[in-house]
Each structure stands twice: as C-alpha cells, then as structure tokens.
Amino acid sequence: MKKTKGISKWSTGDKITLSLMMLPFLAVFVLFMIVPVISSLVLSFTEYDMINAPKFSGLKNYFRMFIEDKVFMIAIKNTLMFAVVTGPVGFMLSFMLAWMINELSPTVRTVLSFLFYSPALMGNVYFIWQVMFSGDSYGYVNSLLLSLNVISEPIQWFNDARYAMTLVIIVQLWMSMGVSFLANISGLQNVDVALYEAGAIDGIRNRWQELWYITMPSMSNILLFSAVMQIQSSFSVSTIATTLTGFPSVNYSTHTIVTHLSDVSSTRFEMGYAAALSVFLFALMAVTRIVIGKLIDSTGK
C-alpha cells in the first residue's frame, strides 16, 4: 500500500465510518495501556493508599526503592538474572531450534514445531514440573537420584534457595517457545534462497557464516519482533515463580520486581510506591529493547 494519497480520497461518510472503526480499540488502548502508564508516572511521586487522596511526596518513593528497600535489591538482582538468562537464552533457543528444523521435510517440521510450541499451548500446565521435582521421595527426580545413589535423602527442590532459581529458569525456558518461535520459523522460511546461492559463490564456507552474514541480516525485523516478545516474558516472570516456589520464596530466592510489585500493591496497598516500581520496570524494559534493536542491527557487519 505504498501509493496511498491520504485520507482526502475518502468521502465524509467514509471518514465517519473509519473514525468509528478506530474508536473501540483506541478507547480500550488509551484506557488500559496509555492511562495506566501515565498514571503510574504521576502516582510514583505521591503516597497513595487507595482510600485517602494521593499526597505529593517528591522523589521519596525512588529514594526508598534504591536506599531503604533491601528486598527490592534482591528483586532487581533476580529479575536481571531471569532476564539475562531466560531472555537471551530463550531468544537464541527459539531461533536456533527454528533454524535447525527449517531444513527438515515439511511433515517433520510441522511435528517438531508443534512439540516446541506445545508448552505455550498447554497454558498454565507448568505446575507439572512441581510434581516432577516434588520435595519428597515421591518426586520423580528425587526418586531417580535416590535410586542411582547420587543423593542420600530427597532434595526440597523448590524450597531450597540453591535450586529454586535454577528450576524456575528451566521452567521459564520451557515455556519460552511461544510467539517468537513461530515468528522465527516463518521468518526463516521467507529468506530468499537466491541469497544463499549468491553467498555460496561469494565464499560462505559453513552454516555459521551463512547464518551470520545472510540469514540474520535478512530477517532482522522478525528477529527484533521476537526479541521484543522475549523481553516481555522474561522481565515479567512472577506467576511461575510464585506457583512453584511459593510466596514469599525461601530467602526471597525467586522474588522478582513483578512479585515485589504485587506484594507492595495488593497486600500493603502502597500504591505510590508500587507505581514507582512499575515506572522503574517500564524503563528497564524500554532500555533493553533499544539496546537489542542496536545489537540486531549490527549482525552481519
């Protein structure tokens, strides 16, 4: 649709129709996306308990976040840990698996795509991991390790600060083959074969060079989309963590910014402070998004 000459071609009646068509989405978008973001920005400078009117408190919430709130520091550390591990690893995994199955026959590709996408289809089935890693000797993993004499007594997987984080990361990775994976598959299928042939003539030796110099640059837009999807899920790990390791987790070992947020807001009703935490999280995600955009832009150079 490159030759569009603007709205002028539409009649007045059509303009009204078009505006009406825009209205429903615009209304929910503004009300549930834009207003929440702006209101958190405003409320982050206040004290607000949902009963009394918000009281302006300047930067107090932000000072509290970085200076007084010890648990928040743990939450940042854990969130970054999740994001740094599950984000890039999940992104690469979803890309690599898509890349690997791309050359297989269509039937095998369809079956494997289904397998890899199935965790996303199964919704909130991740509690199954809890059964497998159950803390008593009925748990499959414990039972297996006991019978192999690797351990002498069952490990409390999810209640042990040493393992909880790793396990939640594994489950998050298991869930991560979502939209981004499907986007990667279709992106790969649409890379022009002629480019590969030209590359082979120009001296591309192996699949790694091909991946870096041809595949990735020619699907950079799709890569950015799937990266955005990964950022979205890896920064907002919370339900998985609280379902598997409980709330609060032992020594806050899987406490993330989002878990902290819901603690501050729905149990303590400190909405001003919660708003400041959201603003921080939004900013963190936006910065990550910009950095990744730059990184993807630099592939093949």
């Binding site: 207003v35 209101s39 947020l261 807001s265 708003a275």
Partner: peptide, 9 residues
C-alpha cells in the same frame, strides 16, 4: 507488568 496501574483504573 501493567497489573498495578490497571488495577487502579
């Protein structure tokens, strides 16, 4: 990520 501000709305 938007849960808290959305809740207020």
């Amino acid at each position: 990520t938007l849960a808290v501000p959305q809740y207020l709305i």
